[in-house]
């Protein structure tokens, strides 16, 4: 049984088909990359799964259980966490408090939530900044904090919406290492990413959306040579580059 299953998920905004008939599944332990041009409906799909949008039609199943149209907090409780494309840290709270808010989901007592949060801050390398206000962090650390906060809810499935956008090469490297470490801890990961150099070596499988539709679902190697994907998203330059390798 797949961990996450989408069947014919469609999301319509007035006349716009943001997602159309998307069917895909994510297996336990996978790292799945979700790519596609701007406006392809990647974030909309995230929102349909995590409860921020209700799909117009279609079914979302998690661990075999239908969760279509559940509210975001219920989705989180069932074991799916997410980060946001535009960071949404709790600005006037400290780094530790941010992560504690996440940890409270599984640890209702403040001292337990605190212990869990400190553990995660250690793991994500934010421990030295635990008393800083979240608004004073750099963009890279804000993204890291969002990830830490999501991890504190102890998810089985983690959605990362452009977790590496806007990071410099060394910060990106750290983020990639982090994703690998999470994967080793049995957390299944779906990431939206624009940086091909990041996605290709990291993902076990790549799913491509274009104009709301799923146009490819394959291994990174085969995606890189898929005619339709090159045409829709990667572009001719990418074909040339992959040939020269």
């Amino acid at each position: 049984m797949a961990l996450l299953e989408l069947k014919g998920v469609t999301k319509q905004f007035g006349g716009l088909m943001a997602n159309y008939d998307v069917t895909l599944s994510v297996e336990e332990g996978e790292i799945v990359g979700l790519i596609g041009p701007n406006g392809a409906g990647k974030t909309t799909l995230f929102n349909c799964i995590t409860g921020y949008y209700k799909p117009t039609s279609g079914v979302v199943r998690f661990q075999g259980r239908e969760i279509t149209g559940w509210s975001p907090d219920r989705v989180c409780k069932t074991g799916i966490a997410r980060t946001f494309q535009i960071v949404r840290v709790l600005k006037e709270m400290t780094v530790l408090e941010n992560v504690m808010v996440g940890a409270f989901l599984r640890h209702p007592q403040a001292k337990d939530a605190r212990r869990k949060a400190l553990e995660i801050l250690e793991f994500t390398g934010l421990a030295p900044r635990q008393d800083q206000l979240a608004r004073n962090l750099t963009i890279a650390n804000k993204k890291r904090l969002e990830l830490a906060r999501a991890l504190a809810t102890e998810p089985r499935l983690l959605f990362l919406d452009e977790a590496m956008a806007g990071l410099n090469p060394s910060e990106t490297n750290d983020a990639v290492t982090m994703v690998r470490k999470l994967s080793e801890q049995q957390i299944t990961i779906v990431l939206v990413e624009h940086v091909m150099k990041v996605i290709m070596p990291l993902a076990h499988r790549v799913v491509v959306l274009d104009s709301g539709q799923l146009i490819a679902d394959d291994t990174p190697e085969r995606i890189a040579t898929n005619e339709r994907v090159i045409e829709a998203y990667l572009g001719e330059k990418y074909r040339a580059a992959s040939r020269s390798h």
Partner: peptide
């Protein structure tokens, strides 16, 4: 201020959408 509810309320004040993503019934 020292209890889960206090943390949750502050999270809701700071960003209701982020609060939802952390399992809080806003």
């Amino acid at each position: 201020e020292r209890n889960r509810i206090g943390y949750y309320l502050k999270a809701i004040r700071e960003d209701p959408d982020a609060a939802r993503s952390l399992g809080i019934n806003v």
